[in-house]
Design a protein around this nucleic acid. Structure first.
Lengths: 165, 165
DNA sequence: CTCTCTGCAAATCTTTTGCAGTCCT
DNA sequence: AGGACTGCAAAAGATTTGCAGAGAG
């Protein structure tokens, strides 16, 4: 399970004369088993279920290490918290994000993927992954009248809640 | 100058029975005059040049207000700091981001814009803006041999430095 | 006059760092 | 044995909140 990723990590460790450890392996494994985005805190709680003696600091340091060796990358956070994601190949799609209700619609466009290939070829760029988000107002929210007294202060929270859906 | 945006803010204020203030107008104006991304801190320093009596807290609160009324939106930060941007219509482009050197190449693809329109029509979505980023390795970095002992710990910093270019 | 806005200081939350002990090679 | 890894507590940084006074309607 996840042998490719483990080997990437171990090679990186060898190359820079770092040292392997049970904890790093465990954190990597738990990270790869997450659905999509995690924060340090979230990952810490997950890892703690498997090894309660682990510290939050170690998760921070390991996630940074995973970022260095290309297994994790930072993602937009809507609340000043850094989120991390890994490759989730079987499941690629882009997002339409409603700025009113915070809902997320997923879409996939072969045209866009093709156009991307063209761009990438033009610039001799070797693509690894991409993120494409269109922000706007969804059909439902275009048709609904926002109650006059409803300030959208909690908007970012609802976006956060639906990000994983 | 910026009369449309000012009117958006003032209508929002009226609608929720908030109160107008010199400071909010000033912060909005300085924000709109900013080139692209600013953090609360950066905007605070800019605003302070025009009105030294202003407090950082007010900038935080005003930027949150601008977000609520749609004039500002949060942006990816590479360091746990929230950045804000506004519409900068004359200057739209997408990004190729090199994960090795952190360099950013800007591109514009009519094909992608067209494909987007198609998607948006299909979902009856009213688009406001979008963000499209392709991550990978740029031409230069593909051809350069990374020194064997160079850990990329400082990568996020170099990304930050080139984000504005 | 009432209720919002503001600056300040304090509180909170996230992330990093120093240190002493433990683990890996 | 030597250096890297780890947990803890403390530090540092970013953002929010409580409060008393100033300002808008």
């Amino acid at each position: 399970m996840h042998s490719r990723e483990k080997s990437v990590l171990h090679q990186y460790i060898k190359r820079f004369q770092l040292k392997r450890s049970k904890r790093r392996d465990l954190i990597l494994e738990v990270f790869l088993n997450t659905r999509r985005h995690v924060s340090n805190e979230e990952l810490y709680l997950l890892v703690k279920q498997r090894d309660p003696s682990i510290g939050l600091t170690t998760v921070y340091r390991t996630l940074k290490l995973l970022k260095e060796c290309g297994l994790a990358r930072e993602l937009q956070s809507y609340e000043g918290v850094i989120l991390y994601e890994h490759d989730y190949k079987a499941d690629h799609h882009d997002h339409l994000i409603c700025t009113v209700c915070g809902g997320v619609l997923e879409f996939f466009s072969r045209d866009i993927e093709k156009a991307q290939e063209k761009i990438v070829r033009k610039y001799k760029f070797k693509p690894l992954h991409h993120s494409h988000r269109i922000f706007g107002v969804c059909e439902k929210c275009q048709n609904r009248t926002v109650p006059e007294d409803e300030r959208l202060q909690s908007k970012t929270i609802s976006i956060k809640q639906t990000t994983h859906s």
